[in-house]
Each structure stands twice: as C-alpha cells, then as structure tokens.
C-alpha cells in the first residue's frame, strides 16, 4: 500500500493530463480546472516544508558547533528577518484595513528585496563573467577540428553581436546572424527533438510506474 497508492495517483493524474488534451466534452472543463487549481494549491504548500527543512538541517549544526556554524546563524537570522518583514507588512495592512496581498509589494519586504536580494542575486551571477574570462584563457583550446569550429563560431558570434563588430567589418553582424540562424538552428533542433523524445519517454515511464525514483526508499 505504501507504494501502490502513490503509483495509482500518478497514473490517474498523469493519464488524465494526457487524455484531456484530446477531449472537448463539456464537463471536462470543470474537472480540468479543479485538477489545475489543486496542483497550484499543493505546490504553494511545498515551500513551507522546504523552509522547515532548511531550519531542521541548520539548527543541529549550530547546536553542535559544527564547521561554519556562525554562518548558519546568519542564514537563519536573515531567513526569519525576511519572513518577519513579510508578516509585518501583512499585519500592518490588515490592521489598517489595507490589502494583505498588496502589502507585500511595498514596505519592509520590498526593502529586503531592493537592498539585500537584488544586489546579492545579481552579483552571484555576475561572478560568472570573471570565471568565463578565466576559462576562455585556460580551457578553450583548438585541440581538434571540432574544438576549432566551436571557437571560430563563438568568436564570430561575439564580434557580430556588438557594435564594434560592424566597425571591423560590415559583414560580421550578417555572418553572426547566419551562424545563429542556420547551422546553430540545425544543432538546436536536433537537441530539441532529442529532448522531446526523452521527455515523452520519461513522462510515460513515470505514468506507467516504471520510473519510481521520486518515491524514495522503503
């Protein structure tokens, strides 16, 4: 029973999502709507479990003074401070007769986004610019015909996409366009078609219960 019921649920929901695409019967709309709404509602609750998990993992590290434990206090502190900022905004809106949903677009939660999340998230990804420069110097070697083709295509695209490319030669932007729209398209389509076949077969394996890794052990 521990596995049969979940497999049955996956089978029923999954096959409905496939079959309903082909059905236009009048009653199907309400059923569809109900299933979609339920999925959205369930997914909204997953974040509570995720947050609980984050706390559950980090508290023992702090209590047992394991490696980097002071940083875990910082992590949990910023987690609760942000949740507090959101709750504060909502409570303030509720007590002043404002709207709880709208309150999150202003006030303390907005502050935590603008001055903490935005610079931190932006810079995390900006770091990659520096690492790609280092990789360009150390790793991108024209060791074979294939690697040489990759580097030549990459260089042409890099030059053609910025204004200085057109200053070097008027043809460069056109060549860059051609690389992206013709040979690149062939490669991308091959990958897309391959991935589509993969997605279909994986989907079928999940629905038919052949793929069960999402159920975990026991």
């Amino acid at each position: 029973m521990k596995k049969q019921v979940p497999l049955l649920i996956t089978f029923l929901v999954g096959s409905f999502m496939v079959v309903e695409y082909f059905i236009t019967a009048p009653g199907i709309g309400a059923l569809r709507e109900g299933l979609y709404n339920s999925a959205v509602a369930i997914m909204a609750l997953t974040m509570f479990l995720g947050t609980l998990n984050l706390v559950e993992i980090n508290i023992p590290i702090i209590v047992r003074r394991r490696a980097d434990w002071p940083y875990k206090i910082v992590l949990l502190g910023s987690l609760f401070a942000t949740i507090g900022a959101g709750a504060w905004g909502a409570i303030a809106a509720h007590t002043t007769g404002g709207n709880v949903i709208a309150s999150e677009d202003t006030g303390p939660l907005k502050y935590s986004y603008d001055y903490f999340y935005l610079p931190l998230a932006g810079t995390m990804f900006a770091l990659l610019a520096f690492y790609i420069a280092s990789a360009a110097f150390r790793a991108f070697r024209a060791r074979s015909t294939e690697a040489a083709l990759l580097l030549i295509a990459g260089t042409l695209v890099m030059l053609g996409r910025v204004p200085i490319g057109a200053q070097i030669s008027e043809k460069l932007p056109l060549v860059s366009d051609w690389v992206m729209q013709v040979p690149n398209l062939a490669g991308k389509r091959a990958v897309l078609i391959g991935a589509a076949l993969g997605a279909i077969s994986t989907g079928l394996r999940v629905i038919l219960g052949l793929e069960r890794s999402y159920l975990g052990g026991d």
């Binding site: 509570f48 609760f80 903490f116 931190l120």
Partner: peptide, 12 residues
C-alpha cells in the same frame, strides 16, 4: 544572507 533572504522571500 543571500540563501536566508531568498528562502524567506519565497516563503512570503
């Protein structure tokens, strides 16, 4: 700080 703020923001 980033991990904490983004998890908290997502939950809210």
């Amino acid at each position: 700080v980033f991990v904490g703020v983004s998890a908290g923001y997502q939950l809210v």
